[in-house]
Write a protein that binds this DNA or RNA. Structure first.
Lengths: 204, 186
DNA sequence: GCTTTAAAAAGTAAGCT
DNA sequence: AGCTTACTTTTGAAAGC
């Protein structure tokens, strides 16, 4: 039947249009976030897998596309926080987080928790901090995390506190406000994490 | 070393029942002191008991949900109060409506801090959900008993989804032994 | 899927003094 | 810098959109 054939074409076109839209959105958001092309490719692969596994049914294309990009950044070791990702998406943060957890679970992405150290180079360079400060921040993160301080804490806040502490120790002081702004956390969070970390380090 | 099972505390019990009679919620809302009824927002009427403390959701069908009680005994006591209040309004209420416990929320303490990162990897990333950016607890779903546990860095945990108090005890036992065999406790 | 109810855990956040 | 309040997660039922 002609009608059935037309319908099939229409569906196929719609599907391809949707895929095209998703991929262009991933591209747009990835550019806005300033992540390398490899991340967009990983995100596209995850999105196609989600599409094949029919994970998009019941949720928005943009939500899934954003969640895939968030996952891809993490897989590539250059994480963007949910807040940063939601800043370039029209999907709200809570929905991106839920969709990400759903996609990660269904596709068995086996995502490891974000290592706060992965935020150090980006945050530190936005603050014009030296290599020395970065090394110190990494040392603080590793040492305190080994002592169990990391459990349950947000990776951005943890990294921010370590950078703040390292900037003090290396005489390149940044204010809590400056660090809080680049990490998109509150000064209160930096203060709390900072106190614990300094104490665990034995107040160097 | 205290047995974690002895730290188990029931925090909330959810149960359902019914009076076996349809209700005119509009008039119940008028006559029942302290009743909250806004059908535009939610089809159930909310009635709170003080002692034991709980909230009952009363529906047009006569079915009732009771939540907030700290024990199955409290659920029965609360619902007895609700049934009597309805009888005071000249509403027919079955003699002994069946009360079914639907969910028990429990808290407990393993007594040691937990490295959630190691646990997430040790128990298998495919069985666990641990996203500290979104929530500080690690979500662990058990098959037997069929409950969900939320583990925290402090060693405290929440167990929910169980239908009887023993479910929480079994869950704590299994969690402790799994963590022990992985060397993630002590 | 949403709406409402209650409850714990711990982290983060916002508003006010 | 506190303190208070509130929101994040999980679970379950109810009736209706």
């Amino acid at each position: 039947r002609l009608r059935k054939w037309q319908e099939r074409i229409r569906t196929k076109d719609a599907g391809e249009r949707n895929l095209q839209f998703a991929l262009s959105e991933i591209d747009r958001m990835a550019s806005a976030l300033g992540v390398p092309r490899s991340v967009r490719e990983v995100a596209s692969v995850i999105y196609r897998r989600a599409l094949n596994e029919d994970l998009i049914r019941g949720r928005s294309i943009e939500g899934v596309a954003t969640a895939c990009l968030y996952a891809a950044c993490r897989q590539e070791g250059i994480p963007r926080s949910l807040e940063e990702v939601s800043d370039v998406s029209r999907v709200e943060q809570k929905e991106i987080g839920r969709t990400y957890r759903y996609v990660a679970q269904e596709l068995e992405l086996k995502m490891e928790p974000v290592d706060p150290k992965q935020y150090v180079p980006r945050f530190a360079s936005e603050l014009d901090l030296s290599e020395e400060v970065q090394s110190k921040a990494n040392e603080i993160i590793d040492t305190t995390a080994e002592q169990g301080l990391l459990s349950g804490k947000s990776p951005t806040g943890y990294a921010a506190a370590a950078i703040y502490a390292a900037s003090l120790l290396c005489n390149e002081k940044k204010t809590q406000r400056e660090v809080a702004d680049v990490a998109q956390v509150t000064e209160v969070t930096i203060r709390n994490r900072y106190q614990e970390q300094i104490e665990a380090m034995g107040i160097h | 070393m205290v047995d974690p099972k002895e730290t188990i505390n029931i925090e909330n019990v959810v149960a359902s029942t019914g009076i076996g009679q349809e209700l005119d919620l509009q008039s119940v809302a008028m006559d029942l002191e302290g009743a909250d009824y806004d059908p535009e927002q939610f089809p159930g009427l909310v009635y709170r008991t003080q002692d034991p403390k709980s909230a009952a959701l009363i529906f047009r069908s006569g079915k009732i949900v009771c939540t907030g009680a700290k024990s199955t005994d409290d659920v029965h006591q609360s619902l007895r109060i609700v049934f009597d209040k309805l009888r005071d309004l000249n509403i027919q209420v079955d003699d002994d409506p069946e009360i079914v416990v639907q969910n028990i929320v429990t808290s407990a303490d393993l007594g040691r801090n937990l490295n959630l990162n190691a646990i997430a990897i040790g128990l298998g990333l495919e069985n666990i959900e641990y996203e500290p950016e979104q929530f500080p607890g690690l979500v662990y779903r058990l098959d037997e008993p069929d409950v969900v546990a939320l583990l925290f860095g402090s060693g405290k945990l929440v167990i929910t989804g169980g239908k009887k108090p023993e479910d929480a005890e079994e869950a704590v036992d299994k969690i402790v032994s799994r963590l022990e065999e992985l060397g993630l406790l002590d």
